[in-house]
Amino acid sequence: MDQNNPVNKLLDLLCFTPAGVIALVVLFVLPLFPPFNQEYLLRWLISAAFIAALAVAFDFTAGFISIVNFGYAAIMGLGGYTSAILADRIGLTPWFGMLAGGLLSGFLGFVIGAVTLRLRGIFAACLAWFFGLALMGLATKMVWLTRGPLGMRVDRLFETQSNLPYYYLCLTMMVAIYIICKWCTRTKMGLAFKAIGQNMEAARTSGINPIFYRLVNFTLSCALGGWMGGFYAHYYGILTPDMMHTSKTVEVLAVAYIGGRGSLWGGAAIAFPFIFAMELVRSSLTNLPGLNLLLYGLLLILVMIYYPGGFAEFFDTYVRKPKNRMMDYFLNGAYGAAK
């Protein structure tokens, strides 16, 4: 449609297609209508938004420079603990605490990125994983600081009993993370990330400095994870080292890959129906514990074997190329999907 329309320009600046905006608006008004205005459904929505935000930030590393940050949950936990401890000890307001947690996690991401610079692929993933295991061990054993497995009580962010403000905050954070990641990846930097991810030697020969880009990528992705960790701490109100467990990373990883690697929006889009289905299975079939996670793993295996591109690739191939110009505008925006 009209490329000079200010609305289109704004949408393009925010990296949204009209379809994306409508999906977002639906998510925003969803809790106002039954049955989603019940508190337990709202909690599912929040956990879905939380996983979605993490999946976007995770995909920023996994989908672009092809390194699975296997200690991601621990990095998120570091952000959460930092924020909680700052609030507890020096009474810093959680809003700044969350940012501080993000900064510290970003710093750790920088360190991990620096240490794994010479390693590739699976070695880097393992090293990040060992960092995660070490962090989780520290959180368990430094009882004087974190209260260990007993759990640390954290002040919640809002004074109300309702979960509604948390939902809106989480959704806003998700959108912010998406926009930040998208801004980074649609500049030259995104191209450089992809080049490094596909073939480091070739990227280096064409003049891309892998050190700089890998460090930037790791730092940013971990900082965003830490920020979300702060939200986790102040939303649940209790922190245990369990939140840093590898299985939490696997949860995020599964959503990110089923959603589609390298797409950023795929993970966020798939998280809502996916988490809902899982919670539904878990709560309706209580006599079959573990069934929901079994399905989870099966789905991951099936997607990896039969459709490695995930939901995003499916959407891009079959839905996103309509004949109708109106539909095309709706799905791809005024500037085309290439953006």
Binding site: L253, G297, L300, I301
Partner: peptide, 24 residues
């Protein structure tokens, strides 16, 4: 293509399946 990473993710899924099959 990208065999190492893909097979790694596959084994992650396999691990989740086996653990929960045991529980089930």
């Amino acid at each position: 293509e990208n065999w190492v990473m893909n097979s790694f993710l596959l084994t992650v899924g396999l691990s989740v399946v086996l653990i929960n099959a045991h529980q089930l």
